[in-house]
Structure formats: C-alpha cells, structure tokens
C-alpha cells in the first residue's frame, strides 16, 4: 500500500513538475523577451534613423529605412575636416589605455588585498568599498580643480588618470583573487624559491585573467560612455571623446540647425567598437567557465 502510494507519487511528481515548469516557464521567457525588445529597440531605431537623410528623418515612417546612409557617413567624415574620427581615436585612447591600466592596477591591488596580511588592510578595503558607493559624477568637479592646480587640466592625462583608479574594479579583483588563487599554489611557489613578483606575474596573473578581462570590459565601457568627466576637464575640442564631441554638434546655438542626422550616424558608429569588443572578448568568459569546471 505504502509502496504503491510512494510509487504513484514518484510517478506523478515528475509529470506535474514538468507541467508546472512548462506552465510557469512562459512568464520569465516573456519577461526576458520584453526586456530584450526594450533594450534593443533604441539600437534598432538608431540603426534605421542613421540611414535617413534630413528630409526623410522626420517625415517618413519610423521603421522604414531611408536612402541617406552614405551621404550621412560622408558628411560626418567631412565635418570640420574629419573631427569625428579624431574623437573616435580619442575615445579609443581614453577607454583602451584607461581600461588596460585600470585592469592591471586593479589586479595588483586586488591580489595584494586578497593574499597578503598587512597592517591597515581592512581600512584600505573599507575605504575602497566606500569608493564603490561614491558616484564618479560627484568627483568630476573637485578632480577638475585639482588637475587645474597641477597644470594638467585640458590634457589627455586629465581624463586618463581619474579613469585608471576604479574602486569597483579593485573590489572585483580582490574577490576574484580570493576565490581563484588557492593559497597552496602560492605556498608551493614560495617553497620553490620564486620571487613574489614572479609569483604574481607567472602564477597569479594568469589565474586572474578572466576576472581582469571583466574589469577591463567594465572600465572600457564606463570610460567610453563617460560624458561629464571629459566635458568638465577638456576645453580643446581636438581632445574630446566622441560623447562630448557629438554633443557640440547638437547644441550649436539657436541660429544654427542641429545636425541630427550626423549625430545619429555618429552615435551608431560609436557603439560599433563596443559591440566588437564584447564579441571578441566573449571567449575569455567562456574559458572562465571551463577552467572553473576543471578546477573543481
């Protein structure tokens, strides 16, 4: 009797569970789909709007592609003798160098905080945590005043240096180092007489690579999209990143037409590097999952 009941429940349970899963499964999927549409639609809009000429931009149906893409690209490239491409290069410089330096610095700091015991370790980490909570926007103006005092305002350094220190990156690197680098490995290295620097470079850094890639990506995107810091720091429009540069196209005073088509085309071009970067660095994340599986 009991056996049959048990058997029955055992037989019934998976069926109902599967049924429930199928029934309830729609809701999260729909939610995710709605989220995807919500985030991708603006990108689609930019994609379609960038193909429209100024005559078509406001007069034709929103989702109907226009015929002005090449004119827009040509005009954008010709704007003030190719200023747009200078801005793209600047953005690549700020985000590329800033992101790489930030990842390295976060790696060193996170590793030190995770793997060494020293006085003030907790204090430093707590200050960093407070830094994570502080929105960088708040710091832009004080940073400007400091840089101006040092004579560095309106230079490439004024945008690069503040981007290199990322409390969140250091925090992430510390967590990652604590989880990914077993103490035994370091101990074994020390027993073999490896120097601390060698230990970090040849043992710790490779193990932390996926985490550092994540820091690099986060920081790259943050710097690429940053507006306020370069807006406050830079006066010379040849040093502008693409965000601040495109803004000057939009607000040229009431008596000049806003260059909508150029700004939209510029916005489209400026997201392409981000997409390319994510696609090309994705495989490191996949490796991360694999290496995790091997380790356990």
């Amino acid at each position: 009797m009991t056996i049959t009941t048990a058997e029955r429940t055992r037989a019934v349970a998976p069926v109902t569970a599967a049924k429930q899963r199928r029934k309830g499964g729609w809701i999260p999927t729909l939610g995710l789909l709605a989220g995807a549409v919500y985030t991708l639609f603006p990108v689609l809009w930019v994609l379609i709007a960038s193909t429209k000429s100024i005559d078509q931009l406001f007069s034709t149906f929103t989702l109907l592609p226009g015929s002005g893409l090449f004119t827009n690209l040509h005009q954008l490239s010709a704007y003030r003798g190719g200023e747009f491409w200078q801005w793209m290069l600047n953005s690549a410089l700020y985000a590329g160098v800033g992101g790489a330096l930030s990842a390295l610095l976060s790696g060193v700091t996170g590793y030190a905080l995770a793997k060494y015991r020293f006085a003030g370790r907790a204090a430093i980490f707590n200050i960093l945590l407070a830094g994570v909570l502080m929105p960088p926007v708040v710091l832009a103006v004080p940073q400007y005043l400091l840089f101006a005092k040092a004579g560095l305002a309106d230079s490439y350094w004024s945008v690069l240096l503040p981007s290199v220190i990322s409390p969140y990156g250091i925090y992430l690197a510390r967590i990652y180092a604590a989880g990914a680098i077993p103490d035994d490995v370091l101990e074994a290295g020390r027993m073999d007489g490896t120097s601390e620097w060698r230990l970090f470079r040849s043992v710790a850094l490779p193990m932390m690579a996926p985490g550092l890639i994540t820091v690099f990506l986060f920081q790259f995107v943050a710097i690429w999209n940053n507006f306020l810091l370069p807006f406050v720091m830079l006066g010379d429009d040849h040093k502008f990143p693409v965000t601040v540069g495109l803004y000057t196209l939009l607000l040229q005073g009431a008596n000049a037409p806003a260059l909508y088509t150029l700004v939209i085309t510029g916005a489209l071009l400026s997201v392409l590097p981000l997409i390319a970067l994510f696609l090309s660095l994705q495989r490191f994340w996949r490796l991360d999952l694999l290496s995790g599986a091997v380790k356990s």
Partner: peptide, 24 residues
C-alpha cells in the same frame, strides 16, 4: 593563455599610446 592575454592588452595599450602621440 594568460601571456597571450597580457600581450594583447599591452599591445592595445601601446597602439593607443601611439594614437595619443599622433593626437598630441
């Protein structure tokens, strides 16, 4: 892998530095 990665990052940084050189 780590080495390749580090090289990649460094070369990206160097390339960007070169750009900075041109720009400035």
């Amino acid at each position: 892998r780590g080495l390749r990665l580090a090289l990649g990052l460094t070369s990206a940084a160097v390339a960007a530095m070169l750009v900075a050189g041109c720009g400035s």
